[in-house]
Computed example of a mutant assay.
Amino acid sequence: MTPAELRVARGITDGGSNPEIAAELMLSTRTVQTHVSHILAKFSFRSRVEIAAEAARQSRVGQEA
């Protein structure tokens, strides 16, 4: 995931809706939706739950480095 996609994914992990994530990251709701769509397509995910799991995995990997 790109850094921007990872920030959006972390917002999903925290249970945020697209408007909530947009407000938190100071982005438009449409930009957040675009990031979500890119993540879903990039990883062939079907749900936000899968995005949250991948974000958690990438966070763990980042902490190990």
Results as ranks from 00 to 15, higher is better:
M1D: 12
M1W: 01
T2P: 15
A4D: 05
A4E: 10
E5D: 13
L6F: 09
R7V: 01
R7Y: 14
V8C: 11
V8R: 00
R10P: 10
R10H: 11
G11L: 11
D14V: 04
D14Q: 11
G15F: 08
G16R: 12
G16P: 06
G16M: 13
P19I: 10
E20Q: 03
E20C: 05
E20T: 10
I21G: 00
A22P: 08
A23K: 10
A23M: 06
L25Q: 06
L25P: 09
L25A: 09
L25Y: 11
M26D: 08
M26F: 12
M26T: 14
L27H: 08
L27W: 11
S28F: 13
T31D: 07
T31K: 15
V32A: 09
Q33D: 09
T34A: 14
T34L: 15
T34I: 15
V36S: 04
V36K: 01
S37A: 12
S37G: 12
S37M: 10
S37W: 03
S37D: 15
H38C: 08
H38W: 12
I39A: 02
I39G: 06
L40Q: 12
L40S: 09
A41E: 11
K42P: 03
K42A: 07
F43I: 04
F43G: 12
S44K: 14
F45I: 02
S47C: 04
S47K: 00
S47I: 02
R48V: 06
R48Q: 02
R48L: 11
V49K: 12
V49F: 01
E50H: 03
E50T: 00
I51R: 01
A53G: 02
A53M: 06
A53R: 08
A53K: 04
A53S: 08
E54W: 03
E54C: 05
E54V: 06
A55E: 00
A55F: 00
A55R: 00
R57F: 01
Q58N: 05
S59W: 01
R60N: 14
R60T: 10
R60P: 15
R60C: 15
V61T: 02
V61E: 14
V61W: 00
G62A: 13
G62Q: 06
G62N: 13
Q63I: 01
Q63R: 07
E64Q: 15
E64N: 13
E64K: 14
A65C: 11
A65G: 15
